[in-house]
């Protein structure tokens, strides 16, 4: 019955901190000559191994800078692991940040198609989903307004509506539900619940252990790039709390 949909095999991510600072050719040659190009390595993830099964709602907890977002980026293919591999079976809708890819000069209507294309949906799919997106985001009256005149909550509404309009196999949610007013948060939760019932696998990052306990079946606790614990969501969250 258990079908693996995500398999993370010993993944490590190394950021090269000192390299980041060289941004010009001049600087590069000056440092080269002075032999200043050091290699200050920073391992944001260290040998992480996880498997997530189909239909699971999987939580990730950890303090700021623990590496949660980095892990999500590796899973969604944005970052290539320095070591290790990730195997995915299915389509992913990464909600790492809502509205990444919106063009503020374009109207909401135009952004629906642009953002849809960014998520890999063609024009026909988006035309079909247009009504639903507009009604879910409740932005009927603002659809021909350029996004630069939107409030941040309105942008988040539109972003969530677009990102979830086509049901993916895997949904990745990185602390995005904190935006939007109370009413819209309820709506987002409901849509996620619906997806869970339809067997969508969800990876959920949140700083609210209450939410994780409530929504997730299993959870992982990451500390300073190391996988500290994996298991039943309640047990992991309680352990995490004790240590905090």
């Amino acid at each position: 019955m258990k079908e693996e949909i995500i398999k993370v095999n010993g993944v490590s991510i190394c950021f090269n901190l000192s390299r980041e600072r060289i941004f010009s050719i001049k600087e590069y040659f000056v440092k080269r000559v002075k032999k200043q190009i050091g290699f200050e390595k920073f391992w944001a993830l260290n040998n992480i191994a996880l498997t997530i099964n189909k239909g699971e709602v999987f939580g990730i907890v950890g303090l700021n800078g623990a590496g949660k977002s980095t892990l999500l980026k590796v899973i969604s293919g944005i970052l290539k692991p320095t070591r290790g591999t990730v195997v995915i079976r299915g389509t992913i809708a990464p909600l790492i940040e809502l509205g990444a890819g919106f063009d503020m000069d374009l109207t909401a209507y135009e952004n629906i198609f642009l953002n849809g294309a960014i998520l890999g949906h063609d024009k026909k799919t988006m035309t079909g989903k247009l009504k639903e997106i507009i009604s879910f985001s409740e932005l009927q009256d603002f659809i021909d307004v350029p996004l630069k005149n939107y409030s941040s909550g309105m942008i988040a509404r539109l972003g969530f509506s677009i990102a979830t309009c086509v049901e993916p196999d895997i949904l990745i949610v990185d602390e995005i539900l904190a935006v939007g007013d109370y009413k819209f948060q309820e709506k987002c939760h409901e849509r996620m619940k619906n997806m869970m019932n339809n067997g969508v696998t969800i990876i959920f990052v949140s700083h609210s252990t209450e939410q994780v306990k409530q929504l997730c079946t299993r959870a992982a606790w990451i500390e300073k790039g190391h996988l500290k614990m994996v298991g039943d969501a309640d047990i992991v969250c309680n352990e995490f709390h004790k240590n905090e």
Partner: peptide, 20 residues
């Protein structure tokens, strides 16, 4: 091929923004 829609949308976006 999967992302050719995106390519089209991005080109359209540039033209729209440039001439709007």
């Amino acid at each position: 091929l999967k992302y050719k829609h995106l390519l089209r949308e991005l080109v359209l976006r540039d033209i729209k923004v440039k001439y709007r």
